[in-house]
Every structure is written in C-alpha cells, then in structure tokens.
Design a protein around this nucleic acid. Structure first.
Length: 131
DNA sequence: CGATTCTTTCCTGATT
DNA sequence: TAATCAGGAAAGAATC
C-alpha cells in the first residue's frame, strides 16, 4: 500500500559519502584512506579542501587564489572531524569555535560571510604551488 | 612534573 | 525560527 513512495530525499543526508556507492574501491592509488591524517584542525580542513575524493562536497573553494573557502555541509564537516578525533559529540558549533581561535594566530582570516573562511599568513600548504 | 599550545565544552547574546 | 557568529571562561589532551 501507500503508493506514495515518493522517492527518498533528493538531498539525502551525507552521512557517509564514499562507500555504499558504486565507487570503485581502488581509484586513487596515491593517497586516500578514508581519513586524512592531520593533527590540527586547520590542516585537516586544508587537506580536505585539497582532496576532492574525500571531500564530497563538504568544502568548496570560493577563491582558490586568495584561499577563501566555504563550508558547504557544516554538519558533515563536524562529523568527519569528530571521526578524526574519535569524538562523536563534535558539532559545527564547537568546531567553529576552534576555527575562530585561529583568527588570533593568523592561521585564518575573517570573512564577512556565513560559513566562509580564508587562510591567513600563518597557514601554509594550501596554495596551488606556493613558490 | 610543569608549561604551553591547541581543542573541546558551555554559555550568553547578536545577527542573518 | 533555526543557523551562525562572537568571544569569554574553564577543562581536557597532547607535547615538550
């Protein structure tokens, strides 16, 4: 019954993007491994931004030249960070607090737009080919 | 062990 | 209204 099988969600939550899909298990020979090994939050974000395979639309460059990026899926980002730190209580609210502390150290610079951040002078390794 | 740095948790209030 | 943003404060974790 209930003929209203009106599909599932269009946006479907991204609980886990890579896996359960027809994604070949062996695509990227180089790096990969469903977890980026970066000790610090900003490095984790940077590496995620630099590896589309793991990113799955969670982060997106707004201006690659200037290092401006946007958090597209805040909840998903928090979950990934939580996985990395083995903390399932992580939320975007808490993650963003840590991100705001980076403004003081120059790792990030403030951008007056929701969910948008920019790498600062003290952040490195995000540029196409710095130097 | 103590100090420092980074992150997490919580909170109140403002803004979108 | 629900999300986000702003920071202060304090606790926790990892390092040196």
């Amino acid at each position: 019954t209930s003929p209203t099988a009106v599909t599932h969600s269009i946006a479907d939550d991204d609980s886990n993007c890579l896996k359960t899909s027809g994604v070949r298990s062996q695509d990227c020979p180089s790096h990969s491994r469903t977890s980026l090994q970066s000790s610090h939050l900003w490095e984790f974000v940077r590496d995620l931004l630099l590896s589309p395979e793991e990113n799955c639309g969670i982060l997106e460059w707004e201006d690659r030249e200037q290092g401006i990026f946007r958090v597209v899926k805040s909840e998903a980002l928090a979950k990934m960070w939580g996985q990395r730190k083995k903390n399932d209580r992580m939320t975007y609210e808490k993650l963003s607090r840590a991100l705001r502390y980076y403004y003081k150290t120059g790792i990030l610079e403030r951008v007056d737009r929701r969910l948008v951040y920019k790498f600062g002078k003290n952040a490195h390794g995000w540029q196409e080919d710095k130097l």
